[in-house]
């Protein structure tokens, strides 16, 4: 029976229902594949990392590992990123080509868990060269709400790779400032 089950999974992966955790960023609802989520933590203080973009808030100690925290609201340039009672950190795992990273993302509030069929979701509309659109897996419609499904892997690997360019940009800016 179990064999049948894995067989189903393999053959009909497209039709399998995935669970997504949704959360609020401003007025929009976003979703992350629940298998990528390690835990949800209340908001606490972080240790700042020097010379980082404002949306990298810093690092926290998660039971002995150092986990970087990114504020998704600032990342997506939403207005009023407040820190209040419902502000939480979603700790999730992002895979790179050969590496798995644990990162925390600050969101306004956690909302629901939905079963969703990846097939039924709509591909991201083409916004031209808007990089942020790359981090979206697709759009889904549940109870007449739009849910934006995020591609955490891409978001994080972009963040980590961006480093060199960032440094270059910074020094260029410095040069032009002077």
């Amino acid at each position: 029976m179990f064999d049948d089950f894995t067989h189903d999974l393999n053959t009909f992966a497209d039709h399998a229902e995935n669970q997504f955790l949704t959360f609020m960023l401003g007025s929009e609802e976003f979703g992350i594949d629940i298998l990528q989520i390690q835990e949800i933590k209340g908001w606490g203080s972080v240790t700042k990392i020097p010379n980082m973009p404002d949306y990298i808030l810093g690092v926290i100690n998660l039971r002995g590992t150092i986990v970087p925290i990114m504020d998704l609201r600032k990342r997506f340039k939403l207005q009023n990123a407040e820190y209040n009672a419902t502000t939480v950190i979603i700790v999730c795992k992002a895979k790179d080509e050969n590496h798995e990273r644990t990162v925390g993302m600050v969101v306004d509030a956690v909302s629901e868990v939905y079963d969703m069929n990846e097939k039924s979701m709509q591909a991201t509309p083409d916004f031209g060269s808007n990089i942020d659109a790359d981090f979206i897996k697709g759009l889904a419609n549940i109870d007449d709400k739009m849910i934006i499904l995020m591609n955490v892997d891409k978001l994080i690997s972009h963040e980590v790779k961006d480093h060199l360019e960032e440094v270059k940009k910074l020094s260029d800016e410095l040069e032009s400032e002077n």
Binding site: P50, V59, N61, G64, T65, I66, R101, H163
Partner: peptide
Amino acid sequence: KSLVSNFKQVCGVSGATI
């Protein structure tokens, strides 16, 4: 503790500790 394992190399910082 490594910063790189979950994040990336940061200039001027060799790691972190608790």
